[in-house]
Computed example of a mutant assay.
Amino acid sequence: MTRQIFVKVDQCTVNFPVDDKPFETVKKIVRDLRLEDILGDDSKVKPLNHYDEAIGFYNGQIKIMWSSKSTSQGVMLYFTSTGLRAWQDIGRLQNIRMDWPKFIAYLSDKSAHFTRLDVAVDVLDYPFGVENLFKNLQEQKVLILDAIGRIRKSDSQKFFGENQRITGFTVGSRSSNCFLRVYNKKVEQSRDNAPYIDLARTCKTWTRFEGEFKHDKAKAIIPDLVKNKIDNKIFSQKLVGYLVNQWSFVDHSKELISIWQDLKDNAKGAEKIPPLEPKLNNRLISLLKWFLTGGAGGVFYRISQLFGEVGRNDFLEFMF
């Protein structure tokens, strides 16, 4: 086989705001996304996190969750990788299309945001595998940099395996905004009844790079995609850009290794997830008020009064 790169969203969760009655929002989501038309009737399923009510589709691979006691948590739409693929593929067979640009436009229109989005990039038949990458990381022939070019220390990398073989590793903390998994997809898909066992048997190597974006990182994705007026091609490029600009695999000279350079080229200039634009919520307003009236702002004002503009500037230069 020739070298190939595939990119997709592996799983995601979306939060919808609720004005009054959560279940009314749930019914609108089911109707708008044609979930019953595509996947059949819903069933009661176990909710996740702090929600106390949930319905599910496709054996619980898709869940819609809400709180019966509060609207502040919103309504959560949860797709596993399997559920997401079933909704889109079965819908396509029924001539009900909900591709990513259309889905993103819908979410933006509803003022929804991602709370988690996993970007999966599969690299097939490149002349290296996870074991080789692990060996080079251990020998520091390959380094991992974060989004601002700092070397990720070895204690941020956790390796795992089976049958005395390294099959993957992670970078960072699961609770952070960004978490990277790198693993041998060929081993996973070579198991009996795996959905892509034929592909796993024909390729020589199959490595997955999977970026898990949560919290503010996930929340900033929809505004960024809407701003860039995506189509399906640009959407794929943006996903790769989110991954390869959050982490970089480089050699000891801090030059990108060949696979990372190929992925960068595949992104076609797409950049990392931008910072979430700040909004004036009540907490931020109270902090600004404190700064200006009782906090550091008052100190700066007093120094300026006592020592003049030169003294104030000297003080600021000393502090910062």
Score class of each variant (00 low, 15 high):
Q246A: 03
K219V: 01
Y196F: 15
A220Q: 06
V14S: 07
I303S: 07
I90K: 12
Q11V: 02
D224V: 00
S236P: 00
Q4R: 12
N228V: 03
E188N: 12
D231S: 01
E139P: 02
P223T: 01
F209L: 15
N177L: 02
S154G: 06
D118A: 08
K110W: 08
N136M: 07
F57H: 08
A112I: 01
L35C: 03
K135H: 05
K69T: 15
N95Q: 04
C12Q: 11
F160M: 06
R34A: 12
K185I: 09
I104K: 04
K135D: 15
F16L: 09
K44M: 08
F235T: 04
N282A: 07
V226R: 14
S190D: 15
C203Q: 08
F134C: 08
S173A: 08
K233Y: 00
V121P: 04
D146S: 07
K110N: 12
E188A: 11
T115H: 10
F160P: 03
K102D: 06
W206S: 04
A147M: 10
A200T: 13
E162L: 06
L39E: 06
F315I: 03
V182F: 13
P278R: 08
E277G: 07
A112G: 05
D99E: 11
K135M: 14
G129E: 11
G40A: 13
V14P: 04
G91Y: 05
